[in-house]
Design a protein around this nucleic acid. Sequence first.
DNA 1: TTACAAATAACAACGGTTGCAGTTTGAGTG
DNA 2: CACTCAAACTGCAACCGTTGTTATTTGTAA
Lengths: 153, 153
Amino acid sequence: MLAAVKTPAELTELFRSRGLKITPQRVSIFRALYDNDTHPTAEAVYAKVLEEMPTISLRTVYQTLNDLAAMGEITQLDLGTGSARFDPNLSPHHHLVCESCGQVRDVYGEFDGVKIPKNKLAGFQVSSTEIVFRGLCPDCAAAAEYAGAGAAT
Amino acid sequence: MLAAVKTPAELTELFRSRGLKITPQRVSIFRALYDNDTHPTAEAVYAKVLEEMPTISLRTVYQTLNDLAAMGEITQLDLGTGSARFDPNLSPHHHLVCESCGQVRDVYGEFDGVKIPKNKLAGFQVSSTEIVFRGLCPDCAAAAEYAGAGAAT
DNA sequence: TTACAAATAACAACGGTTGCAGTTTGAGTG
DNA sequence: CACTCAAACTGCAACCGTTGTTATTTGTAA
Ligand SMILES: [Mn+2]
Ligand SMILES: [Mn+2]
Ligand SMILES: [Zn+2]
Ligand SMILES: [Zn+2]
């Protein structure tokens, strides 16, 4: 179970309450995001939705993801992996990024120590803090170790 | 004075020691980066170099920035501002990003508390940690407050 | 000087994302 | 249920940052 993620029904209700139309495209995108902790790209969401709605356009996926982000229901992550990734998990957390395969994992640490001393802020108003840990996922680390051992012999 | 940044002369020597050619284009780019804490985009570096070398191509700027990054002499930052930014400051630090005007400032805090508990790592090998504080720079914060006050009256 | 590998410049191409315009459709009205 | 119309969708062109390609130029060592 994923924390702090609205269900498709809840997102549907949210859209309705804002006077927006409930279209099958939107509902399908809500389903594709629900219980999804893969931090998918727009293309990945599109691929998933295509399975049950073969006529949806990529443009509509972008449009809906942008709408959700503007409403604060998903977060857009720019991790330098070529394309934006979307995160439906609203609970405060940070990310591990594998520099080899690109996968993104959630980290639920505390990190209360991450506060800038006021004297260093110089008037800057901080509204959010993102921490990105880069490195190797277990699979890629194992592969790298194996390759390193092979090269050393 | 900027910490831990190689001088144009030092970068020139580094290139020479690697058997790379010392071209006026490269030296000009070294100069554009030296003592530059603006985290410039490739276009910004290009604009600066154009002042003293009106024939350089943007492609060469990209090429040299990529080379420097591959050598570890500059860092490429992807902050979701549309284009990559380059940071010649090699001393460990983090960044403040103004969400209104896009400017990027250095933060030299400690943040030793930012360590993932081993039991949460699940085999992930972390090699670097980036912290990005987002918010409003003093100028944009003042402008926002003014606009807010105006709207409230 | 000469010779040549390396670097540059010009330009095409690429990938992710957005703009646009014509068509379709959800949902309120009677 | 039929009608209406703003909103949403689709298809495609365009955009922008970045990279690939290749002919020309140039730094460097002989
Ligand atoms: Mn996440
Ligand atoms: Mn910096
Ligand atoms: Zn991996
Ligand atoms: Zn600002």
